[in-house]
Design a protein around this nucleic acid. Structure first.
Lengths: 225, 225
DNA sequence: GCCACATCGTCGGCAACACGACATTAGGAA
DNA sequence: TTCCTAATGTCGTGTTGCCGACGATGTGGC
């Protein structure tokens, strides 16, 4: 086993959350590594498409991926995710069609698990199975909590909450107001107005494809709760 | 092992979905049966409360349970579930507080798993683990799909969809308009108006604590999609 | 520097819906 | 039966937010 491989395994381990009571053993990791391979994706290409039967799961190692769903004719962006995210595993385990499409925004490097190779390994390594699925449950539960938290609140509150969630270390979010609106299921105009009010309150600044947090406290206030 | 026990095991097996490719063995079931016991709950009492650390998971065998969450001061009913539903397992596996409260509406009989006894058994029975967690993922994913499907639609559409979903074999739903409104996050008045329109369209009839489907086709039409 | 295109900022009109108020009716308990 | 409570039906009124429209401004390719 090469050093590079070792590093990849360590990275893989970090990608499955922090369920501390069930650590992965090196043997577990080595076994998992044999159940798939790395893939590279160019911007605009799909890792998988909604509706296709799920034969693979992905772990993003590098780059940005956009998750979208089409329901009733209109395409909605569900989330934008980066390195460390596990994708498509839920559909894969259930052996059902993917519930969303995953499209590379930037250049993406990801590890692709092969369902047929993975299942036998998981049966032999129950600890890995437990860890993986608990991680999956956590993720799904988190998005559910988020959707529930966003429902039935004013657009201004939603925007404030989303900005707080998505901001990087410098307190910035690089996203167009239009995309943000789609993410929230609101109109671009209303989002723009909400951002205007937040700016007036001294909570944020806005620029071209950019939102910067000025006063975290005021912003949290505006988000309510 | 008594015959009654055997039947209970069979019922337990049915409660964990239909992932046909991994059937439970009698030995698996026998092992699971030793990890908890049956409990009886009177109407109005809680199986578990939001925020309490999850040491148990439940499988409802008989009766109706109401799931609710309090967020930002207001209590919202998330769902009402019946026999066969698995509750609290997600929080239990993550060893975190329950994300919702579960209250018995009618007399409830349920099997209660004990976390500390369950985990060692699951490690020894990877097939059961895989089955259980996949079932959990399916359930969580289904509610997520449902929430997403209800978002950004008119109250009339939401009501129509919900009635179609919840109706029993006779095409009836026994629920007060107020509760239905809470479930949808709408006001009672608006729900009432929506039901009035559905009645006028010949899709449903309404009574005291009752909604009856008259014309399924028209109702589906009103639900859109 | 120039131009096409994406994005931002702002307006008026309109539909959905929450909220308060109130009258009416069904069910259940004494 | 009688009453109390819960549930249903129907008003305005005010707010939120969508939509279409239009101009201003930033960005990247040439």
């Amino acid at each position: 086993m090469t050093t590079a491989d070792q590093q990849h395994f360590a990275w893989l381990a970090r990608s499955f959350g922090r369920t501390d009571y069930l650590p992965l053993s090196p043997a577990d990791l080595a076994a998992l590594a044999g159940t798939g391979e790395y893939v590279e994706k160019y911007p605009g290409t799909h890792l998988f498409k909604e509706g296709a039967v799920a034969g693979h799961a992905f772990v993003v190692e590098k780059g940005e991926v956009e998750l979208s769903r089409t329901s009733g004719g209109t395409r909605r962006i569900v989330a934008r995710v980066g390195a460390g995210t596990v994708l498509g595993d839920i559909a894969m385990f259930q052996e059902q069609p993917y519930i969303s499409s995953a499209k590379a925004i930037t250049r993406v490097r990801a590890f692709r698990f092969d369902r047929n190779r993975l299942l036998p390994v998981l049966i032999k390594h129950p600890v890995v199975t437990l860890r993986w699925l608990v991680a999956g449950l956590s993720q799904l539960e988190a998005t559910q909590r988020r959707v529930l938290g966003l429902m039935h609140r004013t657009v201004k509150e939603q925007v404030a909450e989303m900005v707080l969630d998505e901001a990087d270390q410098r307190g910035e979010v690089q996203i167009s107001q239009g995309t943000l609106a789609t993410l929230l299921g609101a109109s671009r105009q209303t989002v723009n107005e909400a951002l205007g009010e937040l700016k007036a309150a001294g909570a944020t600044e806005t620029g071209y494809r950019l939102i910067r947090i000025v006063d975290r406290e005021t912003l949290a206030q505006a988000a309510g709760r």
